[in-house]
Amino acid sequence: MSLLTLNNVSKNFGGLKALSDVSIDVEEGKITGIIGPNGSGKTTLFNVITGFMKPNGGDIIFDGKSILNLKPHEISNRGLGRTFQIVKIFGNLTVVENVMIGALHYTSHLAEARKEACRVLDFLNLSELSDVYGDALTISSRKQVEMARALTLKPKLLLLDEPGGGMNPTEVDELMGQLSKIKKSGITIVVIEHIMKAIMGVSDRIVAINYGKVIAKGTPKEVSMNEEVISAYLGDTVNVL
């Protein structure tokens, strides 16, 4: 069953077609990877899904209902969490307070929210950062804290925009472990990533985008063998697997 369905979604910036007739099905309980060269429309796709931008055409169905005309906070309340490519951490709050914000959605009791935040931080092995202020974090920690923050909302679907950006190979491995763990807890994930080895390894399905069009869909193996994907993005099959 698909949790999120995009039907012919288009988005124009003036004369530029950032997205044209994008149709994607995100299966429940799976990790869907989105790949594509820089400027191919991946982040625009996330912005359209989460309500930060209005599409010029098409429909977006989440959990059986259209979310087309909803505002970001309303979409979030339906059970859709998101992280950002350019991390948006609350620098004025500590890590545990950052993560608490999501939990406050379910309880107005601060101590309870803090407990829940600690649980999620523990789940992602981030407990030791609890009392550090957001703006003192390194880029890779910020990415992980942002993910923890989205998780306290207990989303059905989590959109991750380049969670591995700025991470070293060890940190990327750790991140992929976290993604598998999140998937196991029953949360569906859509992830944009540039690190091929990582995304091909962790995803159940891959969608490749170029110039705002879907050029290939399928299992990681199918997509990596696709001629169009190779010429558009991967360059050389030898480097992939």
Binding site: G91, N92, L93, E97, M100, I101
Partner: peptide, 19 residues
């Protein structure tokens, strides 16, 4: 806490369900 979040980053706050 919501105000601190909105002040910190409004887009991120919206994405945590904060109006």
């Amino acid at each position: 806490y919501y105000l601190a979040a909105i002040n910190g980053n409004e887009d991120a706050a919206e994405m945590l369900g904060i109006h």
